[in-house]
Computed example of a mutant assay.
Amino acid sequence: MLKRYIVIFIIMTFLILIFPGFNSLTFAEKPYESAKSAILIEKDSGRILYSKNIDEKLPMASTTKIMTALIAIEKGDLDEIVTIKSDWINVEGSSIYLKSNEKIKLKDLVYGLILRSGNDAATAIACHIAGSVDNFSALMNKRAKEIGALNTNFTNPHGLHSDNHYTTAYDLALISQEALKNEVFREISKSADYMAERDLNSHFYNKNKTLWEYDGGDGVKIGYTQTSGRCLVSSATRNDMQLIAVVLNDNNWFEDCYNLFDHGFDNYKRIQILRKDNYIKDITINNGKIDRLPVVINKDLYYPLKKDELKDVKISITTPTKLTAPLKKGDLIGKINITLKDEIIYEGTMKLTKNIDEKTVKDKFVNLINDIF
């Protein structure tokens, strides 16, 4: 038996030394077996760094509240006072213990929603914003389609089980990516605790252990029902790269997310591919008040890459050689296409940032005199 273990150890050591990618591949596959569905993406680019059954429709429990919070922030006034109605309270499951006729800020409800996962807070938010749970669910579904989460359907704002309430790991990653673009949501999501302006049950502690257990952990939401199992959306940031991990129906939810993060941070680095204001070329302007237009990159672009992938990135920039005035601000003057191993990772445009007027008779006369002398 001892000889057998020694042989296995020697073989594993040999494979790791001879094939450097072997260790990361086995690491990438093993830790996530307990998740029914899992995904890891980089927040800014949306690049998928790991995936498992990412398009399978599954219940998502209280990770639903990521969308609830986003809509509350986008459509509500967080300083507005909400008067709690009797049919908004006593909701099954997690609670912030709202009372009938209690007056509370919408901001406090959203903190209670994300940190304490209050189902009563979710119901109050929905009814305050849209008048009813059904109306709010329609807003949630509309926003999901706008984000591109096409395999998601919401029937409530809290995530308690309903047969027609589901998402996918991929869609939930997209929704979380959109939510984390919002500064207010980011601040709420990364808060370890919060003190609400109310007399009782005012101190909310975040249930998301990622914030203090994982180096760089900064959000976003946990969820659990008997039907959905343990669901977790986590985010973490290191070296200016923020990753989003999603696991659905996973008994090893936190540890699997941490392993996903380790895989991402160990194997990928955020690389700048485009630099804003970098000069590309001049375009000749016919009949314009200026003769030449310098074309420059109009944005910074970063993308997560493995160590050996940079050589496979190809940048193609197409611009006309001549344009004729008048030209208006917003007119297209170029296209950018970036590929990684022939896969398109970015398509963008360059547009005029100001008007270019055509020459007047006076301009043409002055130019003629200048040419003569």
Rank of each mutant, 00 (worst) to 15 (best):
V133G: 03
D218H: 05
I89L: 02
G264C: 08
S37N: 08
Y224V: 11
I84W: 01
D55M: 06
L25H: 12
G216H: 09
E56T: 14
F22K: 07
K341D: 14
T319Q: 05
G76F: 08
E343L: 06
I244N: 03
K142T: 15
K57C: 06
K276G: 07
V110F: 11
I333W: 00
A179I: 15
F14S: 14
S100E: 14
S86E: 13
N164V: 07
H263N: 12
A122W: 04
L310Q: 13
S37R: 03
L340A: 00
Q272T: 11
F261D: 04
A126H: 06
K99C: 07
W212H: 13
K269Y: 02
I73H: 10
E178P: 06
D371I: 03
K335P: 00
A236K: 07
N151K: 13
L332V: 04
S94A: 15
K190E: 13
D371K: 13
S316C: 04
V295P: 02
I11H: 05
L139P: 11
I129H: 11
G118A: 11
I41R: 01
S202F: 13
I18V: 15
L200R: 07
K43Y: 00
G219R: 02
E183D: 14
S202R: 13
F265T: 08
R186K: 14
M350I: 15
L301G: 12
K364W: 00
T68L: 10
K281V: 05
N153A: 06
L180D: 01
G217M: 06
A236C: 05
K341V: 04
K43E: 13
A169K: 02
L200F: 06
P326Q: 09
F185V: 15
I10F: 12
I280M: 11
L40H: 01
I271A: 04
T210D: 04
S132P: 13
K351Y: 03
K311F: 00
Y32E: 03
R230Y: 08
Y268A: 03
D120Y: 03
T324R: 03
Y205A: 11
H128P: 11
I333D: 00
F185Q: 07
T83D: 03
F261S: 01
L248Q: 05
P20E: 03
I290S: 03
K307M: 10
L174D: 04
P20C: 05
Y5L: 14
K103F: 04
R143W: 10
T284Y: 10
S132Q: 06
I39K: 03
L200P: 05
N252C: 10
L305D: 02
L327N: 01
E102P: 05
L70C: 09
T318S: 13
R47C: 01
L160G: 10
K281R: 11
K190W: 05
I10V: 15
N53F: 02
K52C: 09
D120F: 04
K99V: 08
D79Q: 13
G264H: 07
D218Y: 08
D291W: 00
D44K: 10
N141K: 02
I10S: 11
R116F: 00
K30L: 12
H161T: 10
K209L: 12
K354R: 11
I147C: 10
I273L: 14
N278I: 10
L323P: 01
I73V: 10
D363R: 06
D291S: 08
K354M: 06
L180V: 13
I73Y: 10
S86T: 04
D240Y: 09
A179Q: 09
Y279R: 04
Y224H: 15
E92Q: 14
S100I: 01
S51Q: 14
